[in-house]
Design a protein around this nucleic acid. Structure first.
Length: 423
RNA sequence: GGAGAGGUGGCCGAGUGGCUUAAGGCGCACGCUUGGAAAGCGUGUUUACCUGAAAGGGUAACCCGGGUUCGAAUCCCGGUCUCUCCGCCA
């Protein structure tokens, strides 16, 4: 969530920036600031009363010790009213804080200056495009046909065991998954991201910390018996590793990576979007996460995008980079670059990575700070990116690299698959 | 799942209702001392919020949440986590 300070100091600029999301934030901001004023006045009152109470208690104690029983009793009799007042104000204070907190949670992150205004994905800006779209010729088919032809993925079996959106990988299809995970992890490791294997279920505090709660509650699988959520991305457990921490300046940047399966309910999806590997309830992903000093975070974001581009180049896939417009920007992000690969048989772009700078938005929820040059605690900037999400990469690999002889495995991946063709 | 013990500052650790404004130690920072260092000595060393131009002042926090009391780290209730033993188990 945004900091109160950001609202107080820079209100006009903040509201202007939020219009890029198509949001008129002014009423909500006013409400939050009103609550804040009320809260501060209340706190002043209650603090003064408590100071009075503390002084009186000390006095009573001294009187008792001095043996002046009657005076002490008299003084004590006067305290009841004060106690009631404090209790009432304390309750008021608590509900004001709760109300302010939930209002603050409704406010999305402030888009970075470079974010274009726009309503939907149609308004995203193409930053760059790389690689040649292959000319597949007449016999080319989409990945779901290829997966079937070469016995790589059994969608039917997944439906039987679990339901739609839970594919079963088999044979070289399974090996390809494992190879990609290993390839991505090795590359992240080489780029300085320490590997973690986190839990796949998280508690509500963690889900709140990275912003999945409350705004994406319906998108996560929830084990109600234990009140645990299946992770929709490794971002959640990895970023929460440092929830509540006060870091040293020299600890930064912190660079983490991890492979996890990801679980998403994807309520409301339909049609060609969900065909084959395009949209799944369970999929594999390698995620990279960074904790940065504020002044470095945008350079770090560039570096992360470049890291992902390197992976796509080595997989010999045509891809483009998009700068997300305000309307398509995630709730918690200040700036996001999406990377999309060309799906040659479907003739459409598929999103395979989303790389974002959250600035202090997550850090404020997480209470993750570092000690700055002045020795003062300051919120860190958090960033993350998919590097990469597997299903659509597999879809693009199958489709783009199909030949009359079978599927060609890119050179960089062959040491991991230990086969060069799927035939 | 059952029984028992425990959770105090960056760390160790004392503390069973008011000189706790959390002892003492370790660590760390600065200073004195020294040719330099160690030792020694001295000073300092949490966070959040409120107030103030600042210096400063106030409030809160001893796992979390309630309660008792003029007053709670301390007493009571609920929760949670850790450890030990038992049970179950890949």
């Amino acid at each position: 969530m945004l900091t109160l300070q950001a609202l107080r100091n820079d209100r006009a600029a903040l509201e202007a920036a939020l219009t890029k999301r198509g949001l008129d934030a002014a009423p909500l901001v006013s409400r939050i600031l009103d609550l804040d004023l009320d809260r501060r006045t209340t706190q002043k009152k209650v603090d003064d009363l408590k100071a009075e109470q503390n002084a009186a208690s000390r006095e009573i104690g001294d009187l008792f010790k001095a043996g002046k029983r009657d005076e002490a009793e008299a003084r004590r009799a006067q305290m009841g009213d004060l106690k009631d007042q404090i209790h009432v104000l304390d309750e008021k204070q608590k509900s004001l804080i709760a109300e302010q907190e939930s209002a603050l949670l409704e406010l999305p992150n402030r888009p970075h200056d470079s974010v274009p205004a726009g309503q939907s994905e149609a308004d995203n800006v193409v930053v760059s495009e790389e690689g040649d779209k292959p000319n597949l010729g007449a016999g080319a088919v989409p990945h779901w046909d290829l997966a079937d032809r070469f016995n790589l993925i059994d969608f039917e079996a997944g439906v039987k065991i679990t339901g739609a959106g839970f594919p079963v990988y088999r044979g070289k299809g399974a090996k390809l998954q494992r190879a990609l995970i290993q390839f991505f992890i090795d590359r992240a490791d080489a780029a300085g991201y320490e590997e973690f294997i986190p839990p796949h279920l998280v508690n509500p505090d963690s889900a709140r910390g990275t912003g999945q709660l409350p705004d994406k509650e319906g998108q996560m699988y929830h084990s109600t018996e234990d009140d645990l959520y299946l992770i929709p991305t490794a971002e959640v457990p990895l970023t929460n590793l440092f929830r509540g921490d006060l870091l040293n300046a020299e600890d930064l940047p912190i660079q983490l990576c991890g492979y996890t399966p990801c679980f998403r309910r994807e309520a409301g999806s339909y049609g060609k979007d969900v065909r084959g590997l395009n949209r799944l309830h369970q999929f594999d992903k390698v995620e990279i996460v960074r904790f940065e000093k504020p002044e470095n975070s945008y350079a770090a974001l560039e570096g992360m995008v470049e890291h992902v581009r390197g992976l796509l180049r080595d997989l010999e896939l045509p891809f483009r980079t998009l700068r997300l417009c305000g309307g398509d920007l995630g709730f918690t992000a200040a700036l996001t670059f999406d990377l999309e690969v060309w799906s040659a048989a479907q003739e459409r772009w598929l999103e395979v990575s989303s790389v974002s700078n959250f600035e202090t938005y997550q850090a404020n929820r997480l209470h993750c700070r570092f000690r700055n040059a002045e020795g003062k605690p300051e919120l860190v900037h958090t960033l993350n990116g998919s590097a990469l999400a597997l299903p659509r990469i597999v879809a693009a690999l199958l489709e783009n690299h199909q030949t009359p002889e079978g599927i060609r495995i890119p050179k960089a991946l062959q040491p991991y698959t230990r086969f060069d063709t799927i035939a």
